[in-house]
């Protein structure tokens, strides 16, 4: 057993293989260094899958920093704040989420790492923290260079078609600008290719539903009824689903930067709005004089509350209507503008 243990040395880091947008695949990934290859182990709990990458076949390792740490800290922070307002017993839960924020922060910045071979680009989920990536690259480069040799900057420049390497600073900038021009034209070509794969239909539908949600909220503002409240809730649920699908679809597509930002802003708005409405509904539920046993009682209670009775609720309604209509119209304008291009 000891000889087998020495066959593989574990590289630092653990992660989950991304099986879906919400990373709910639950497949744990780890990386091991063998004598002549890297072993990726994907543990599903009841079985393991293995992928081997031989040192002679590894062409490159690319890493880019992302903002997952910040996103998770925001989510934990929202939960910590939410539980902090509910009294002493739930303060412990709030403290738990605060400790998660601290641990997440101490683990360092998050990143995504890919391993390139001649035929594939493999994501390495276990290398999801910058510290682990730097450590892994140091160890891997040592063994890969023992197998393949070292590549000098001159060789890189020569093989990637740089015009010259012995330039002054000005000429280097000129060469870099030419590279950026080439990259822009290559990225424009890439945009045209990826626009073919996604036509923006989900985003268009999303913005139409957003406008419809704004109109429904305006009607609800003037006239309260149970069917309208029910239809509004269905519309909100549909909006949430469309939003998530749109966020997935826009990854790597040719959708314009402003449309992407608007979609992300809409997600942020929906999260904040849902959280505030949750607080308001809880408050109304506790304050309600009639007992609430069924969903029907709940719907009746919601539809009986008028925004005119409460100034805070009035502000929420106005902000919601304004955002939904404005964002919907802006989104549709951007989508039609990018289609015309």
């Amino acid at each position: 057993m000891n000889m087998n243990n020495q066959e593989y040395a574990k590289l630092r880091g653990k992660g989950f293989k991304r099986g879906s947008f919400l990373s709910l695949s639950g497949i744990r990934a780890s990386l091991w260094l063998g004598r002549d290859h890297i072993l990726c182990i994907y543990n599903k709990g009841y079985e393991e899958d293995y992928k081997r990458f031989y040192f002679r076949d590894i062409q490159a390792i690319t890493t880019h920093q992302d903002n997952r740490r910040l996103v998770w800290n925001i989510i934990f922070g929202v939960f910590a704040l939410a539980f902090a307002f509910w009294g002493l017993p739930l303060l412990m839960v709030s403290a738990f989420f605060l400790s998660l924020i601290l641990i997440n922060w101490l683990r360092g910045p998050t990143c995504t790492c890919y391993l390139h071979t001649a035929v594939s680009r493999e994501n390495l989920p276990s290398l999801n923290r910058l510290k682990n990536v730097n450590h892994a690259i140091t160890r891997l480069s040592h063994v890969i260079e023992q197998e393949q040799g070292h590549v000098s900057p001159e060789e890189i420049h020569h093989n990637l078609g740089e015009k010259t390497i012995n330039n002054t600073d000005g000429d280097l900038q000129k060469t870099a600008d030419q590279d950026i021009q080439k990259m822009k034209s290559a990225s424009e070509t890439g945009k045209r290719h990826s626009e073919k794969s996604y036509n923006g239909r989900i985003h268009t539908t999303l913005f139409y539903v957003l406008i419809m949600s704004g109109i429904l909220t305006s009607i609800d503002f003037l006239h309260r009824s149970i069917p309208l409240t029910t239809f509004q809730m269905i519309c909100s649920s549909g909006l949430s689903v469309l939003l998530i699908v749109a966020l997935v679809k826009q990854q790597g597509s040719g959708i314009s930067q402003w449309t992407r930002r608007l979609t992300w802003t809409t997600l942020g708005f929906m999260c904040v709005f849902s959280f505030i409405m949750y607080i308001i509904v809880m408050f109304l539920t506790f304050q309600s004089k009639t007992a609430i046993y069924t969903t029907w009682d709940y719907m009746r209670m919601l539809s009986s509350v008028s925004p005119y009775d409460n100034s805070f609720l009035l502000v929420i309604y106005v902000v919601s209507i304004s955002y939904c209509v404005t964002a919907g119209i802006a989104g549709l304008a951007m989508m039609s503008g990018s289609k015309n291009k």
């Binding site: 890493t63 001649a118 890969i144 590549v151 060789e155």
Partner: peptide
């Protein structure tokens, strides 16, 4: 920083690429 998306990027290449 990547020239297009401005994300911090690090790339290590080896001789087998060429």
């Amino acid at each position: 920083n990547c020239p297009r998306c401005r994300a911090p990027v690090r790339t290590v290449v080896y001789p087998s690429l060429f």
